[in-house]
Structure formats: structure tokens, C-alpha cells
Design a binder for these strands. Structure first.
Lengths: 132, 132
DNA sequence: CTTTGGTATGTTATAACATAACATTAAATA
DNA sequence: TATTTAATGTTATGTTATAACATACCAAAG
């Protein structure tokens, strides 16, 4: 990989799979989708994911052991991102605004903590599923 | 189990392991600690953990795939709990106050979402480790 | 007392998620 | 071209979690 803008072949393939829909996928789901493109082993997926996460192009959802494409220009600049995950339709809303970063910085201050990684995930029922 | 105050034998054993220190343990670490007490299979641990989590006596840390005893009287009454986890000493601070519940309720309102389960986890360096 | 039904438990096997260790390929440049 | 560096491939294994089925225990109904 020469820089953060160009993707290697495997990275592009993984990015394409995650980019097709805004839904979380496990590494093994991605692997299965890419067998036709020559993928054979989990590491091929995990290595690409690691890079993509480093670039801020993909997020890991800890509570699902799954991955999702970032739908912002970039989340790196903000203080953090919150994921709101519908248990019924599996749709994920990605929230990354001042309320999130203020909450996180307040929490860090209160606990005298230097955070390097944060995870905020809500599970429940989204508006569309609630109405249905 | 007759009620939420009494624990079954296995539940008490698992609770004891988690209660001994305020540090997160994986299900398999717990299993190993309980082999001397007759535990032989992961399910014995997972089933006990499930009950203890339901009672609010234990929390699951999603980002660690680990479990920790609740160090409040009860976290059930609040809107949620945030975990602040030091990557160096592994100490976990459990924060469950208005700032957390207000943040979560605000986020739910903004995203038109009914949350049934939340996870807030920060990783980084705690004050003690920073100074050291 | 004994049958019935619920809850807890035990056991085996396997699914699902993740990484270590090492071999190979390919591209960049001295 | 020789060197080295990044990317990739491959095998094996480690780690986390649950499915499926069997057994034990106890309490209430008959």
C-alpha cells in the first residue's frame, strides 16, 4: 500500500463487499462473499479489515463481532462514534456529532482517563420497525 | 432458582470468582478456576453468567468478551453504564450516573430509537498508569 | 406415594470468531 | 540485478460461544 488513499487489491474487494449495503457483516460472511474472487482464508479478510479500520473507512461493532462501512467522510476527526443498531431489521445508524464527543470527553475527564479507543453501541428497535 | 436473591450452586461459584477481584475475566478463565469445584464444560459458566447478568450482578464487556462483577448496588435502575478500561493495568471503572443516562436518552430520542441494551466502553490509560 | 412438570445441571459436539507462524510473490529501489 | 520491503497466501491452532440431547432434582397435583 503506498498511501491512505489507495487500497490494495484485497482491501478494495473487502471494501466493496461492505460498501454494497449499509449492514454489518462478520469477517466470515465477507470471506464467503469473496471466495469467488479467490479468497480462501480468514486472514485475508482480517488483514484487509485492519487496514480499512485504521483508515477510518470501516468500523468494528464490538457487540456483534461484525464490521460496517463508515458512512461519513471520516470519523477520525471526531471524538467518537455511536452506533444505533436495530435488532429487528439490523439497520445501523452511525452518530458522530458534538453530543457524542462531549459526552466522551466529559467521561474521560471525570475518570481521569486518556481514551484511545471508544465503543458506544445501542441495541433495540428502530422507528421504522416500531411502526410496522 | 426460587428468586432473584438466591443463587443456584453454579451461579454462586461463578459469582465468587468474579467477586474476588474487580477485574474482567473470560468465561474460559472462570471455567479453569472452577475445575476444582467440578466444572467441566463452558456451558456451566455461560448459563450461570446469563442468569447473573439478568439479575444485574454481572456485566459483560463486549469489547473484551469478558465479564465483571457489578460494583454498584444495582445498575438496573439507571439508564446505562459506561466502562472505562485501562489497557495497561486492566482496571475497570464503572460509571453509571445521570450524564450517562442523559446521553443515552438523548441519543435514543435523536435517532427515534427504543434501546433495550447499551454498551459504552472506553479503552486507554488510567491516571495511575499515566503517572507511573 | 407417585406422576407430572419445571428448573437446573451435565455432556458431547460443533459453530463462530480470531491470530500465530511461516512460505511465497511482487513491487520498489539501491 | 540484488536487496529489501510490503502484500499475500497457507496451514494450523487458539479462543469464544451455542446447539442438541441426557440426566437429576424438587415441588405441587392427583
Amino acid at each position: 500500500m503506498t498511501n491512505n488513499f489507495e487500497l490494495s487489491n484485497n482491501e478494495r474487494l473487502v471494501m466493496d463487499v461492505l460498501g454494497r449495503e449499509n449492514s454489518p457483516k462478520s469477517a466470515y460472511m465477507i470471506l464467503d462473499e469473496l471466495r469467488g474472487s479467490g479468497f480462501r482464508a480468514p486472514l485475508q479478510v482480517y488483514r484487509a479489515l485492519e487496514k480499512l479500520i485504521g483508515m477510518g473507512r470501516v468500523h468494528r461493532l464490538e457487540s456483534l463481532n461484525a464490521f460496517i462501512a463508515c458512512n461519513h467522510i471520516s470519523c477520525e476527526k471526531t471524538g467518537g462514534t455511536a452506533f444505533v443498531i436495530c435488532n429487528r431489521c439490523e439497520h445501523v445508524q452511525e452518530v458522530c456529532d458534538d453530543s457524542v464527543s462531549l459526552f466522551l470527553s466529559g467521561l474521560a475527564k471525570k475518570t481521569k482517563f486518556k481514551a484511545s479507543k471508544t465503543s458506544i453501541e445501542l441495541h433495540g428497535i428502530c422507528d421504522a420497525c416500531e411502526d410496522a
